[in-house]
Design a protein around this nucleic acid. Structure first.
Length: 423
DNA sequence: TCTGGGGTCCTAGGACCC
DNA sequence: TCTGGGGTCCTAGGACCC
């Protein structure tokens, strides 16, 4: 049932005109994702106000939102608003697992799926209408399948641009579907408050309101010139264009993350460098593992330290070569932390974060990492030799001998010297 | 009001090269 | 050696999103 694709009843020209008349950009957004997952996993939580999180609310179910609870908000404040709320720890592994199952379902109607976070994605179904029918029909099928096969509510907005589709899905919640018909975009868009716009947060909202801009219509009427001195050229033109319903951004299928990072909050904070060393090592290990799991390497490292106040300082540097090595991230991360601490007056550090960007996938370098792993302390001499030999063979087989040199220079360390000497 | 962990994108100054 | 102009890379920080 759920796998059947709806087809237009008649494939005549009238039907096709109608089919192509609907906009083709979908924004699919799981409702109160984390909280919905908790309710699905534990039936006792269904229909009840749920808060996911520890110190702060990471997600609140709709039952809790009715009391004014919002994420992120301290759990203490949320309980004051909604004393009956049940606080649950997050099951983050489950969230990722369920998220990828939902994304697979979305990919059943088009390969052009751009995932923008765990719980939302854009789809461009223009290439699928001749096979699957109207976009609104596809949306109905997707919503039903996600509900039946994964057990989660999914809202979808359909419009002619990403920006409008995103706003439409927000207006469709909870558990709804909203199409913005062509020609009626302004009717939908212009009465909205500027805060409804994607890209207008606390700071920009305050600046706009100071100029007397309250609605999207106000923004569209004003034009970019007045905004440039306040928001900078890019933001001014970008927001004005969106308010005038100009959003040419395509849906990027198959896009991958441009950085990988991790951070750890430290409560009241640490002052001892030795304690921070342990934290940095833990973070470097996490980031290194995740990079290796993705088969990727980064060429730039950024370390961020937060101090009470709250004030934060970041220090970054280019790496000697692309890497996913925990040891390298740790060593360079520590030197960046030392530099970051110079900017403080010995205040406690309340958060340490590390992010690797400039990511690339390179098969030669990936094999170099395998070698790195092979020469690590976990292996016996014989195991190391076997792993090294198999890596050398694999590189030769795929790329020929010359690329060994390339790999060595790009790697920036001596893994390959050891290899080359062997061979 | 700074309490979480994961990201994206833009700006601006300085270094460096031609 | 200085002067000028332009381009690009690197780094630090800020705003925003879920």
């Amino acid at each position: 049932m759920a796998n059947q694709s709806p087809l237009p009843a008649v494939l005549g020209s009238d039907t096709l005109v109608h089919v192509f008349d609907e906009p083709t950009i979908l924004h699919a957004d799981l409702d109160a994702f984390y909280a919905s997952v908790e309710q699905m996993l534990d039936p006792r939580l269904r229909g009840r106000p749920i808060l996911v999180g520890g110190g702060i609310v990471v997600a609140a179910s709709y039952e809790a939102r009715r009391f004014g609870v919002r994420a992120p908000m301290p759990v203490r404040d949320a309980l004051a608003l909604c004393p009956d709320a049940i606080v649950v720890d997050g099951h983050f592994d489950q969230y990722l697992e369920l998220s990828s199952r939902v994304m697979e379902i979305l990919e059943s109607v088009t390969p052009v799926v751009e995932q923008i976070s765990v719980d939302e994605a854009f789809l461009d179904v223009a290439g699928s209408v001749h096979l699957l029918g109207r976009p609104s029909e596809m949306a109905r099928v997707l919503r039903r399948r996600v509900r039946e096969e994964v057990g989660l509510p999914l809202s979808i907005g359909i419009a002619s641009t990403k920006f409008l589709a995103k706003i439409a899905s927000a207006r469709a919640k909870p558990d709804g579907l909203l199409v913005v018909p062509p020609g009626r975009e302004f009717e939908f868009l212009h009465p909205l408050p500027v805060e409804a716009m994607w890209g207008v947060g606390r700071v920009t909202s305050r600046k706009l309101r100071r100029l007397g801009i309250e609605t999207v219509a106000d923004l569209a009427a004003l034009g970019p010139d007045v905004l440039v001195p306040v928001l900078g050229p890019h933001a001014a033109h970008h927001l004005t264009s969106l308010a005038r319903n100009r959003d040419p951004r395509p849906v990027h299928g198959g896009r991958r993350a441009g950085s990988v990072g991790s951070q750890t909050a430290l409560g009241r904070g640490l002052t001892s460098v030795e304690e921070m060393r342990v934290v940095v090592l833990g973070i470097a290990d996490r980031v290194g593992r995740r990079l290796r799991a993705k088969g990727r390497m980064g060429s730039k490292l950024t370390l961020r330290a937060r101090f009470p106040g709250p004030r934060s300082v970041s220090r970054s540097c280019s790496l000697p070569g692309p890497t996913a090595s925990t040891a390298t991230l740790y060593e360079i991360g520590m030197s960046l932390l030392t530099r970051a601490l110079e900017a403080s007056d010995g205040e406690p550090v309340t958060l340490i974060g590390m992010s690797v960007s400039g990511l690339r996938t390179d098969q030669v370098l990936q094999l170099a990492l395998d070698v790195d792993d092979a020469v690590g302390p976990g292996n016996t001499k014989d195991q190391k030799r076997r792993l090294l030999d198999s890596s050398v063979d694999a590189i030769r087989e795929r790329f020929g001998r010359d690329l060994l040199k390339l790999g060595r220079s790009a790697r920036g360390d001596d893994s390959f010297r050891r290899l080359s000497e062997k061979s």
